[in-house]
Nucleic acid binder design. Structure first.
Length: 579
RNA sequence: GCCCCCGUAGCUCAGGGGAUAGAGCAUCGGUUUCCUAAACCGAGGGUCGCAGGUUCGAAUCCUGCCGGGGGUACCA
């Protein structure tokens, strides 16, 4: 059910014959910015004035006369210079809401052109615990996956683990020279983290002008040995991997992120890399660079390495191999990379290199996002200056959620409060992240995201819980209501606004997917929750003036609850019945 | 140096050709015999960084400048 598309179709018909190509003008129909201008507005009359050599208002009148309103629209109004203000018939809204009351998909149609997407997200370094920097990639990627799948697309999720790069050279060097065997046995990941940081500290900041740092050089040598298949290094690497992976998977479970379809890390592509470089050279995509390195040149001073002078390959090489592999095995129409904005240039170069290499007929998109900042507006750090570990951040969020439940519903059983704490805490973190335009940085603040007012996850949960309370109190089973949906009456502005908002679900999901912006869903949720609160405040349900009104309002409530729940689920956020 | 992103209310941010520029927080005022007031309603608050340009129409597109962030061949 897509109101915008229905209205646009009417204008498409009306415009046909007036102009050679109606599409640009059809695109000028959008939801009204101000409710007093109606539900939707068409802004095409002004633009048509020049093309048709007539006054905008005359064109608007002509268009309105050509429109087949049917029972969808009321008679449009022409305002200002030539705006056409459109208002849906309330009877049509009522009928349509009733018709989707028992629809599993809440009136959302599946995409007609089904595509296959490969989404690359989270992609942590296996050598280090997940930190707050992985939060955005993971939850944005998860939300996009859920959205695309809900709309009927095929999505292949792939966690492109950093399990093979220079950081493993650092670890190998540290493992051989600095390892505390007991500590490693007890908690390998913790000890590896310590080793990693220790080696980084020993290397310090590398300066181009200074003599080559011997430790950095030794680490690079370890990386190169690993890449060449040195048995000792490969064995140590194989020893590292399982505990590190388990640590990462435990975080995903805690966060409620489902397992990936694939976890083909960089190591997976290692055997392909020499062939990739050969092919790049053969096709003149790559050329020799300084000191025996092999490079791809994009401009005078924009160059990507594909083979270092010591023979090791880089992430550009590995990413090109990955593109080739995914094309062959998944045959996608699109490959999406949910990676932070600092890698924009890498992806611009990577995609350009892939095109030159012959990759075509596939969308390659870098879904860039901003940084998570601390209160000082600098990338968030612990008090000690280290990275904030994701595991402890999630624990803290759950604890914060617990405080909310304990303060408000101490009467709930302990087990239920624990469950609610998790849903609220983790939900608040995810919501706070997803409700930002992803390209912006944002300041991480538990106080703000846990706030019970404003556009927060907690507010959404609350809207849902208050709604469910009605059914509990009235002892009404929503399933029974849905099976035999009552007639819907939209006699107050609150009910009408709610019905309209419910029918805009598909529009919001399509817009979220069109620009890969989960914040389109939170914006929709915010509008819906606000509209619902107005309804809740002004339209008593259990004590409605008649049974017919009560039944109608119950249906609106039930549909609202389901839309709230569905949207939150698409964002990876769980709902609870009480809080 | 070169390239990319950002600059909108006191604060945090929406809006990316259309009507008097919106929301949340904060501030001030109002609403509860009623389904969770963790709510709702209202008020004040803006040279949309600056200057040009394109357009019937610019916060939005183009150019320049100022300010902030990021990247810039052997990390990923």
């Amino acid at each position: 059910m897509n109101l915008l598309h229905l209205i646009q179709a009417k204008f498409r018909t009306a415009l046909t014959g007036l102009v050679p190509d109606p599409e640009p003008y059809v695109a000028m129909i959008k939801a009204a910015q101000d409710a007093k201008h109606g539900d939707y507005q068409a802004n095409c009359a002004m633009a048509l004035a020049k093309a048709l050599g007539k006054k905008p208002r005359e064109i608007a009148e002509d268009l309105v006369n050509r429109l087949q309103l049917c029972d969808l629209l009321e008679k449009p109004e022409i305002a200002g210079p030539g705006f056409i203000n459109l208002r849906l018939q309330s009877s049509w809204l009522a009928k349509t809401v009733q018709s989707i009351a028992n629809d599993d998909r809440l009136g959302v149609e599946k995409a007609q052109a089904v595509k296959t997407y490969v989404i690359d997200y989270s992609s942590p370094n296996v050598a280090k615990p997940l930190h707050v920097g992985h939060l955005r990639s993971t939850i944005i990627g998860d939300a996009l996956t859920r959205l695309l799948r809900f709309l009927g697309h095929t999505v292949v999720t792939d966690n492109h683990l950093g399990d093979w790069g220079t950081q493993f050279g650092i670890l190998l060097y540290g493992y051989k020279n600095l390892r505390n065997a007991d500590a490693y046995k007890k908690d390998p990941v913790r000890e590896l983290t310590r080793i990693y940081l220790e080696v980084r500290r020993l290397i310090g900041v590398e300066d181009e002008d200074e003599a080559v740092n011997p430790i950095a050089e030794a680490c690079r040598a370890e990386t190169a040995k690993l890449h060449k298949g040195d048995p000792e290094n490969v064995a140590i690497w194989q020893d590292f991997m399982p505990p590190c992976l388990e640590e990462i998977h435990a975080i995903y479970r805690k966060l409620g992120v489902p397992p990936f379809d694939h976890e083909h890390g960089e190591s997976f592509y290692n055997p392909l890399l020499p062939g990739v470089v050969d092919s790049l050279l053969e096709k003149k995509v790559a050329e020799p660079g300084d000191g025996g390195a092999i490079i791809i040149r994009f401009s005078e001073n924009n160059v990507a390495l594909v083979r270092k002078r010591d023979g090791a390959f880089t992430y550009t090489t590995s990413d090109l191999a990955t593109i080739q592999y995914r094309l062959k095995h998944f045959k996608p129409q699109a490959m999406l990379y949910v990676v932070d904005f600092r890698q924009s240039q890498h992806f611009a170069n990577l995609f350009e290199a892939a095109r030159r290499w012959g990759v075509s007929n596939v969308e390659l998109t870098h879904i860039s996002f901003g940084s998570v900042l601390g209160p000082d507006k600098r990338p968030i750090k612990t008090r000690e200056g280290g990275a904030v570990e994701l595991g402890s951040l999630i624990d803290e969020a759950i604890q914060q959620g617990r405080q909310v439940v304990d303060a408000n519903s101490p009467e709930l059983p302990d087990a239920e409060r624990a469950e609610v704490a998790e849903a609220i805490g983790i939900g608040a973190v995810k919501y706070a992240d997803l409700c930002q335009n992803r390209t912006s940085d944002y300041i991480f603040s538990f106080d703000k995201m846990m706030a019970m007012e404003g556009n927060t996850g907690t507010y959404m949960q609350y809207a849902y819980v208050r709604n469910r309370g009605i059914f509990r109190k009235a002892a009404i089973d929503p399933l029974t209501l849905r099976k035999n949906p009552p007639a819907v009456a939209l006699d107050t502005p609150y009910e009408r606004a709610l019905a309209l908002q419910l029918l805009k679900l598909e529009e919001s999901l399509l817009s979220a997917v069109a620009d890969y912006q989960p914040s389109a869903v939170t914006a929709y949720l915010w509008d819906l929750a606000k509209t619902y609160s107005g309804f809740f405040q002004n339209c008593p349900v259990i004590k409605a003036e008649s049974d017919a009104v009560k039944q109608s309002r119950l249906l609106l409530c039930d549909l609202t609850a389901r839309v709230l729940q569905q949207c939150l689920e698409l964002l990876g956020i769980k709902t609870v019945e009480r809080m």
